[in-house]
């Protein structure tokens, strides 16, 4: 692999990793608070991709021209509706089962994932959809000839910038606001927090909303960058983002981002070095291996079993 291809793959990997990181945040926050995997999270991301395309088309029909305005409006609208979806998932599939058996919420979340996929398929059709590329243009680095360069598109730059921004906002919310303190308190000890007047149900809802918002950012950015999607994209991306969350240490916000980057980079370099066909196999195998050998992840602490 030549230098240019390698650097190109690293760039692509970082971009991909930012997306995984953004989605992984949703898994890691939910897991941190209720100790369960939100199986419908990947599909919330898929919904965000559809919403982005729909809002983009709607704004174009309304005659909005300026790219920054479009990006901002689409982002805000998508976040709002996607967050509502995240909230609804919690309300329907998790809250009624808070005191049920261990398997029940898992199964209802899988049911929710099936519902979302099929609901989108039935209403939007099963075929792959696309959006016009409206963020073309790119930067070339290390240019040494006609085929010898590293290309970074503006959309890719937008992804990384927005991912950093999104994580920054989230970090601020969690660390510096009363809301974030409530979240962290519930994460530590839900019963104690409720005794101190923190409404556990509201915090759990909030976490689902925040996670969905981050997935919405990811969905919007990916749609801007790649422009094509179908009702099934949430499945594979969801598992990979979950892998990222586990890799970084589930429950930890910086861990999710780090895990996303590590996964994105290694997947991208694997595709460049070995084979593109097996890149999903690679990611899933990584998931299995991490869970077997280091379930606490890179930044997580090993769990002590409660007897």
């Amino acid at each position: 692999m030549s230098f240019h291809i390698f650097v190109q793959q690293v760039v692509n990997g970082l971009v991909l990793g930012s997306v995984y990181g953004l989605i992984a945040v949703g898994y890691t926050m939910v897991y941190g608070i209720i100790g369960m995997i939100n199986f419908a999270h990947g599909d919330v991301y898929m919904i965000a991709a559809y919403l982005t395309a729909i809002f983009l088309a709607a704004l174009t029909l309304l005659g909005v021209q300026s790219p920054p305005v479009i990006i901002l409006l689409v982002l805000l609208l998508t976040i709002a509706v996607t967050a509502l979806y995240g909230w609804s998932v919690e309300r329907i599939a998790y809250r009624p089962l808070r005191h049920s058996t261990r398997l029940a919420p898992l199964i209802s979340a899988i049911g929710m994932s099936l519902i979302l996929q099929n609901y989108v398929r039935l209403s939007q059709g099963g075929r792959t959809q696309g959006t016009p590329t409206f963020l073309d243009g790119s930067v070339r680095l290390f240019e040494q000839g006609p085929d010898q360069f590293v290309q970074i598109t503006h959309a890719q730059i937008l992804i990384v910038v927005m991912a950093v921004l999104g994580m920054g906002v989230l970090w601020y919310l969690m660390q510096a606001t009363a809301m974030g303190r409530a979240c962290r308190a519930v994460q530590q000890d839900r019963i104690m927090a409720s005794l101190l007047g923190v409404d556990g149900d509201r915090v759990i809802s909030l976490v689902f909303v925040l996670g969905a918002s981050m997935a919405a950012v990811a969905g919007t950015l990916v749609t801007f960058n790649y422009g094509s999607f179908d009702f099934f994209i949430g499945f594979v991306t969801g598992i990979k983002a979950f892998t990222a969350a586990v890799l970084g240490g589930i429950g930890s916000l910086p861990g999710a981002m780090l895990g996303g980057l590590v996964l994105g980079l290694s997947e991208s370099i694997f595709s460049g070095l070995v084979n593109t066909d097996y890149k999903d196999v690679f990611a899933f195998s990584l998931l299995v291996l991490v869970l077997i050998f280091r379930p606490s992840g890179l930044l997580g602490r090993p769990e002590v079993e409660k007897v």
Binding site: T243, Y278, D280, L287, L291
Partner: peptide, 26 residues
């Protein structure tokens, strides 16, 4: 895998199912 927590087991088996299918496919 079986020493894992219930949720982890679910997702690992999910990943394993996909691995098998992808390998067959590729």
């Amino acid at each position: 895998v079986l020493r894992m927590h219930g949720d982890y087991l679910a997702i690992v088996t999910l990943g394993f199912g996909e691995i098998i299918r992808l390998v067959i496919n590729n």
